[in-house]
Amino acid sequence: MAISRRAIVLAAGAVLLALVPPVAGLLNQPFYVDLFRRMMIFAIAALSLDLILGYGGMVSFGHAAYLGIGAYAVGIFAFYGVDNGFLQWSVAIAASAAAALVIGVISIRTSGVYFIMITLAFTQMLYYLGISLETYGGDNGMPLKTRSQFAGLVDLRNPSAFYYVVLALLLLFLLLGRRLVDARFGMVIRSARSNEPRARAIGFAPFRYKLAAFVLAGGACGLAGALLANQTEYLTPDFMHWTRSGEIMFMVILGGMRTLFGPVLGAVVLLGLEDVLSALTEHWQIILGPFLVVVVLFAKRGLFGLVSRDG
């Protein structure tokens, strides 16, 4: 059996990511551990968005909301001296999923531009809520007192240990996502994206499946938010700014919608370019913008489509 290019790309990607901490150590460039960890955290957020945007056809323009909720869950617990990571992260996931449930129940009844506007509006509400929380720093945000503690199991203050926790979670979500979109559940939301009247006519009631996907994606992104708070050791309403939602969406489209792996690539490339270009010039967005336009125009299936085309 021939091994597909896709499988080779995936295996190579996983190995390369696993090699980042030792290589950075050899080169005495610890900064790269930090950068790639950040990429992987956003990769989790982006692949959760791909579930609903790519597979479910729900153009959520408010995915940063869950990033913020997850981060605030960790930050607020830490503020009151509760640093148990199991508790913090569980609440981050549960609170994000609960918010997604509320937003989803209202937004999934609509489609197209209305769906975009409702998801955007909810996220703006949460953004302004964050600004108004003076106790937690208002619009300045506040530093995270300590990183999440895991009863001596793993120490997130160790940059490499934290890195491998994030890598393991990313790989876990890739696996879960893959299984989910190919299972019956995934087939329902994919068929509804493809042709909802037809899906209804053959007997699917897509609403609850789309809602469930929306909630799962929210919960997964909430965990990414919990990771992000630990990454930056700071939390701010900016996590929920609408440009952040746009960035996550760009990672999905740049990497390739409906591929799960594409959004990971998209997160790595987007944040990587941001890092490289911003070192060259402060007007780096002038270079990044046209690059994104070219990719969207000429690579319909995104960057992952270019590198994984099975020949």
Partner: peptide, 14 residues
């Protein structure tokens, strides 16, 4: 599939 019970199955490839 639409007529084989609910579709909240998340693991087995359909």
């Amino acid at each position: 599939q639409a007529h084989s019970g609910h579709s909240f199955h998340f693991w087995r490839p359909a």
